[in-house]
Design a protein around this nucleic acid. Structure first.
Lengths: 142, 142
DNA sequence: TAGTTTCCATATTAATTTACTATGATTTTT
DNA sequence: AAAAATCATAGTAAATTAATATGGAAACTA
């Protein structure tokens, strides 16, 4: 059980956006360079963030991305779920039909409790919390 | 981020063992049948449990497996780690060299905290706790 | 002691998921 | 019209997962 790169990249990209002091939207090229990712791949990740309602995009030259909400109101769980879909450790906790043992299963409660703890922990952290760990705001001026 | 079948099967198999009221060791064939798994596959899973010091085996006819410790002294985390190796959500939390961004990473703390919460939750559950969820002890008499 | 029953060890494989790369269209500014 | 950016979708290589397959070794039983 590992955190996928997709989730880690998405989380870090959001922190970068939150640390930006630009008034203008931030181009993917900048973030891609800072995070050592290809711009094309990062585009896919930002599609997920956009679909999750966490960033807004502006197209064309001078376009880019900005946060869709105040970073105080964005939790790590939201970012996680934008990247990875609704959080669930086991399918049967949401859809009991996915496993025919679920009615008699002695371990389903364990996985439910663990899922709840994880969600609780992730939703207690805001993007502001994460962005403050970075030393200074990002300027992006050249 | 899902719990693998390997971990889930291992956890359930341990609960079955814990619920057994036999004095004799339990044969894999019984557990395989109850859990709808092939005996051959279950053998591999029990090798992991044995290497983890959680079960003891007896070979030959009348052989089988039994718990190596009192179920009060076996935690869900031990079972998890026997099946999946030492628990870590991200490599960089243990080996910072695995990611060259780790010194400046704003999210590493998040993953560490989450890892700790998960370990804490899993180690607070004993095999006894899990076994009690099952209605009655298993008899395996024919 | 021959045969059966059980666990032990390792190799192989099919399916799925992950982590991208590639191609090209669309929108906006200059 | 050209350039700069996002948008959409297809394709793919590598890794991981979830098994199956094959044969051996130990212990009990007739």
């Amino acid at each position: 059980m590992k955190i996928s790169t997709k989730i880690r990249y998405g989380m870090r990209a959001m922190v970068e956006l939150a640390r930006s002091k630009r008034e203008e939207p931030v181009m993917l090229g900048i973030i891609a360079k800072n995070q050592n990712l290809s711009e094309k791949y990062l585009e896919q990740l930002f599609t997920l963030l956009r679909n999750g309602g966490l960033v807004k995009s502006e197209r064309g030259a001078k376009g880019g991305y900005r946060l869709a909400k105040d970073p105080d109101n964005i939790t790590a769980l939201e970012i996680f779920e934008a990247m990875n879909g609704p959080f669930e450790l086991v399918d049967c906790s949401i859809n009991p039909g996915s496993c025919k043992r679920s009615s008699e299963c002695e371990t389903i409660e364990l996985w439910k409790e663990l899922s709840d703890k994880i969600k609780e922990t992730l939703s207690s952290k805001t993007l502001s919390d994460l962005a403050q760990k970075g030393k200074e705001p990002l300027d992006y001026s050249i």
